[in-house]
Simulated assay, not measured.
Amino acid sequence: MTTKTPALGDSDIGVVAALMGEPARAAVLMALLDGRALAASTLAAEAGVSASTISAHLARLVDGGLISVEASGRHRYFRLSRSEVAQALEALACLAPCRPIRSLRQDTHARAIREARTCYDHLAGRLGVALLEALVRDGVLVASQSKRARESDPILGAGRSFDYLLTDEGRSRLLGLGVQLVSSSRRPLTRYCLDWSEQRPHLAGALGGALLLRFLDLGWIVRGERRVVKVTQSGRSHLAQEFGIVIDG
């Protein structure tokens, strides 16, 4: 006797939307959007809830497959389960209204996060968008119109969706900078995210992650508070020299 596999219908996005839509859980997911693992106590502070309440929210997010948990001794740390979760959060941020600014600290952070930030494990904000544009302009990447563009990409619109391909010259140039170019069947070398603050693409994929790590190793950028990335004085000089990216200020 053969067992018939039940037919599957459309994706049930309501399940994921309900998990993301609760304010405390949304705050947790946004806090984890820089790709790092954080302790429950840190996430409770980010969400503004008690330790017992955050435990229940984290359990639901783990069960729903949006975050994973790692043990280190007696402590547990949480991170986004995969890059697709970060991509979904960034896409939602493009649709979501901005929160009102009620303090000088909030205003300072809002400006900084738009200037340069991490989106999971790659650069975003003005710096991330400028980097992708520079890589295409300099021939490191070639933007070729994708099949999605011909079929009207739902995010970028018809004629604005591209596949970004690494050229041979670009590969040599990036290897010369010490960028580790590793891709796998699970993760493409290049992919774009639509940047929620700039409304233009920034570079994701394995190459986007490798560039972030290399810039950190070189000391061109340093991590700041809550996903913010700060460009160092050395970074200003080298980004201008290598990629023609001029950082104001």
Rank of each mutant, 00 (worst) to 15 (best):
L29A: 04
G224K: 06
A56T: 01
D10L: 13
L239K: 01
V222I: 10
H57R: 00
G170F: 10
L189K: 05
L58P: 06
T2L: 14
E90H: 07
M20W: 00
V229L: 15
G35I: 10
R126M: 09
I245G: 06
H238W: 13
Q106E: 12
F243Q: 09
V15K: 08
I247D: 03
G219I: 15
W220T: 04
T232L: 08
A112W: 03
G219S: 11
D163A: 11
L80K: 03
P97H: 03
V231W: 07
V85L: 04
R60K: 15
C119E: 07
G178W: 00
S52N: 10
L43D: 00
A40Y: 03
A149N: 03
G35T: 05
P201E: 10
M30R: 13
K4Y: 15
L80N: 00
V28R: 00
L29F: 05
V16Y: 02
C98D: 14
S81P: 02
L104V: 13
D153F: 09
A134I: 12
H238P: 01
R214W: 08
K147D: 13
H202C: 14
L156G: 13
R74L: 04
E242G: 01
R74Q: 07
D217Q: 15
P6S: 07
R126V: 05
A116L: 12
G209W: 02
C98N: 13
M1H: 12
E169S: 03
S52P: 05
R126H: 09
